[in-house]
Design a protein around this nucleic acid. Structure first.
Lengths: 297, 297
DNA sequence: AAGAGTTTGAAATCATTTTAACATAACGGC
DNA sequence: GCCGTTATGTTAAAATGATTTCAAACTCTT
């Protein structure tokens, strides 16, 4: 559902009627209470009728009040688990249980990323990204996937996003030769490192552009060619390397950027959502989308 | 309820009947889930009828199941407020500490994925993948990134991997019209769901192919069109949705597949490594490649 | 292994909650 | 200040969920 409940409420706040605003404000403030209330009770506490509450739910895109309620309960459950994370099931459970083991390892990767990434560098990277005129994103081979993910979202936010994913050095220079000091390059590279990534970043710096490296350790060859260094572990006990932690880092990068450019961006997203609805690119399953219920297996 | 719910359950544990014990244990372990369940649902999850659940509630001294439910919800709210207090202090440290917050949320997503994904379905999916003649992978928009990641590794293992990433239905059918019963399709779709994913999977099934869905809940439209269903949460407290948990799941899929085809695959990888070394695609930093050392910040 | 006493699940009944239909009230433009 | 529009409340029907009943299954003792 693209937007999270609270974000969505924020986004739609000025489209709400007086009564709906009362409900919206209450939910933003006390969703921990609201999640357990019936439509009638919620209406009573904010001083509107139950119908208004139900209408508010469908206005938000939910297929009935119970769905909205479920969304709030989900939110609570998320919040709850997020601080119970001390007792993480890092249990190495069964040898035969690949699923639990891999996912457990990925959790560890992310945890180490939290510890190891410099917040200072992260914030600097966000600042530079927001200031930049053009954003170049470098990622080849398996990292091409996460590079394109980053690009997908940045293209929704920024005008000038260029993805560099090529096997030839010549082609690479064709992509970046216009680079100027107002630009920024984000190089993503993990073992076995790509020579081209280093080359691209060195070139960018020679032009005065800011270079952000997303890589797996301070011993990576990208480090000496970068202004901001973001570390995310990728090694796994297997043939494949996990890019889960780097992806999570990229997530954080996107979220931080969106938050920083909130005002410009929220308008874009609202417009986009309308286009999507009209175009019917997505199935209108149940309601137009929204929180699915608890699964029941 | 005089005494605290959990204490009371502990106290009365040995007076409970078999079915009641099942309920009691579940509540002790997962009250965060139980609090949001109806009597019927709770009964279903522990394998007992709703009557037994209701009787359990009055056994505990509550005047009906809803009262017990309220007690559990109270418990959650108490925990939540203490959690929020912690959170306030930790978010004081950096008002803008997006990094920790996003990564923390991603950890939770993965943990919930461990809880919610059926291991049976996972294993079935791996089996079918290994048997398949051709593998089709469907992923559009933001999921195109993780689809291409999956494809990248599968192409190292299998001969016939086809990625479907197109905006037009016609083009999609051009990709999949040769599909036969020996093939498999892996459809990746998250809210807002892609209609095409459903179409592609329905088509595949009509040809007798096995269909694997990677999606975010049992309420997803892909579910009814799939033979194996892999659940990974994607919703985040922000505008972007996180694909970290799905990526982690895909990791597990790759690892499990590699392990199953160990013998054939290890040869391939050795050969590949030689090519890489000769071609010098990668920097030969420090040693000739591989795992970098501990970083030293 | 027979039978009293428990425990259980299915279905019927009862209660609550949501939703839809309709009526009334508030608002904004002219 | 009138009229069309939109928002809100009231109420009754529908849906969902909880409870009770009753018969069957299970447990224990003898």
């Amino acid at each position: 559902m693209i937007t999270h409940l609270l974000t969505r409420i924020d986004l739609m706040m000025n489209t709400f009627s007086k009564g709906q605003k009362r409900i919206a404000l209450f939910i933003e403030e006390h969703y921990d209470k609201a999640a357990f209330m019936t439509a009638a009770k919620l209406g009573e506490t904010v001083g509107v009728s139950e119908s208004t509450v139900v209408r508010f739910a469908s206005e938000l895109g939910y297929d009935g009040y119970p769905k909205l309620q479920k969304a709030m309960q989900e939110m609570i459950r998320n919040k709850l688990t997020s601080v119970q994370r001390i007792e993480v099931t890092s249990s190495r459970i069964g040898e035969n249980n690949v699923l639990d083991s891999v996912l457990g390892q990925d959790i560890d990767k992310i945890r180490r990323t939290i510890e190891e990434t410099s917040h200072e560098d992260f914030n600097r990277a966000v600042d530079e990204i927001c200031k930049a005129k053009r954003i170049y994103i470098f990622g080849v081979r398996s990292t091409a996937a996460i590079a394109s993910f980053l690009a997908y979202y940045f293209q929704l936010i920024f005008d000038n996003v260029v993805v560099i994913n090529t096997t030839s050095t010549t082609t690479m220079y064709e992509h970046i030769f216009r680079m100027s000091e107002d630009d920024i390059i984000i190089g993503i590279s993990f073992p076995r490192y790509s020579k081209m990534a280093v080359e691209a970043m060195d070139f960018a710096r020679s032009r005065g552009a800011h270079a952000v490296a997303i890589t797996d350790s301070m011993a990576s060859p990208l480090v000496s060619s970068a202004d901001s260094i973001l570390i995310a572990r990728s090694d796994m006990a297997s043939i494949v390397d996990s890019l889960v932690a780097p992806l999570s880092l990229i997530n954080a990068l996107i979220v931080a950027t969106v938050l920083k450019k909130k005002d410009e961006v929220s308008e874009t997203f609202r417009a986009l959502e309308q286009v999507w609805n009209r175009e019917g690119v997505y199935t209108n399953h149940d309601s137009d989308d929204r929180k699915p219920e608890e699964n029941d297996r």
